[in-house]
């Protein structure tokens, strides 16, 4: 029984980390048709901001999230204007941007490596201790991560569905020409979407690195896993992605407990591949009709 509970707790923690990752990724896919392989860079930037703020500057934890948000938004703005906008019009954008963002991820990782050093650091924005449930402990950091994941999701969903900025971002993603003809500056709308995604990703980075460790390449694995989760949920489907993040997090942890640590991700990926062979558009994805 305790093992069962332990699996659920670890699974939820892992799921929460995946979930915060999927929010920014499916936002960008849903609005711009862009898979952001540099998502991990934002995670790392968020983590290093927290480290710099608290450990280096000795400032209070209160400043960490606003700082990470600002850094992430700046990163999103730069990524759009330096890279994305130059290839957006291309027919092959969806693949070109994967190659380009892999390069961006490597660039940022290399930069952090040179500035902050290769060694793993403890990121101070974390709560120690946990809630005792019988013999197992539910870490406060997990509760915090789950809570922030849900809050971020609610905020992002609110912005996208209810605010003017969100309506504009959706309009631009659905019909660029018509948006221009309504007086929308398409480039600034995309820049806004990327800033939103960047800010969310950096905040998620603070939480993810708080639960694990901080090193220059920290986000890359999480990015790939989160993208796989987005694909299986049906890309662009935010609620589905979050749900699948928890399901697959639980599955991965269960496999780890039963068969051994190293088989978690392989088993999860195999499950995803089988599911995708059965449902190529994802579990909650829409069947889209391609026009020739």
């Amino acid at each position: 029984m305790d093992i069962f509970l332990q699996i659920i707790i670890s699974g939820v923690s892992l799921g929460a980390m995946y979930a915060v990752g999927t929010i920014a990724l499916s936002l960008l896919w849903g609005t711009m048709g862009m898979m952001n392989l540099a998502h991990g860079s934002f995670i790392a930037i968020g983590g290093y901001m927290a480290y710099w703020c608290m450990t280096v500057m000795g400032a209070s934890w209160i400043f960490v999230l606003p700082l990470a948000l600002a850094a992430g938004m700046l990163g999103g703005y730069l990524l759009y204007h330096l890279v994305v906008r130059w290839m957006f019009e291309r027919k092959e954008f969806s693949v070109d941007i994967i190659i380009a963002t892999v390069a961006v991820a490597a660039l940022v990782e290399n930069g952090l490596l040179n500035v902050a050093g290769p060694e793993a650091k403890r990121q101070p924005f974390s709560i120690s201790g946990g809630l005792k449930l019988g013999d197992v402990v539910l870490p406060y950091q997990t509760i915090l991560t789950v809570a922030v994941a849900i809050i971020l999701m609610v905020i992002v969903l609110y912005i996208v569905t209810r605010t003017k900025m969100g309506i504009v971002i959706r309009a631009v993603s659905q019909q660029q020409v018509a948006s221009q003809l309504m007086g929308v500056n398409v480039m600034s709308a995309f820049a806004q979407a990327m800033m939103l995604a960047g800010g969310v990703a950096a905040i998620s980075g603070v939480l993810v690195t708080g639960a694990t460790q901080l090193f220059p390449g920290v986000g890359f694995d999480t990015t790939i896993k989160a993208l796989v989760i987005c694909i299986i949920a049906g890309l662009g489907n935010l609620r589905g992605a979050i749900f699948m993040a928890f399901v697959l997090g639980l599955f991965e942890v269960a496999v780890q407990y039963i068969f051994g640590q190293q088989y978690g991700f392989p088993a999860m990926l195999s499950l995803v591949i089988v599911l995708l062979i059965l449902r190529p558009h994802g579990l909650f994805g829409k069947e889209t009709v391609e026009r020739v």
């Binding site: 309506i167 959706r170 309009a171 659905q174 019909q175 020409v177 018509a178 948006s179 003809l181």
Partner: peptide
């Protein structure tokens, strides 16, 4: 300009 072929925002 009212563009050719509608160009409404299809998912709104």
């Amino acid at each position: 300009q009212i563009p050719q072929g509608d160009l409404v925002f299809p998912d709104m």
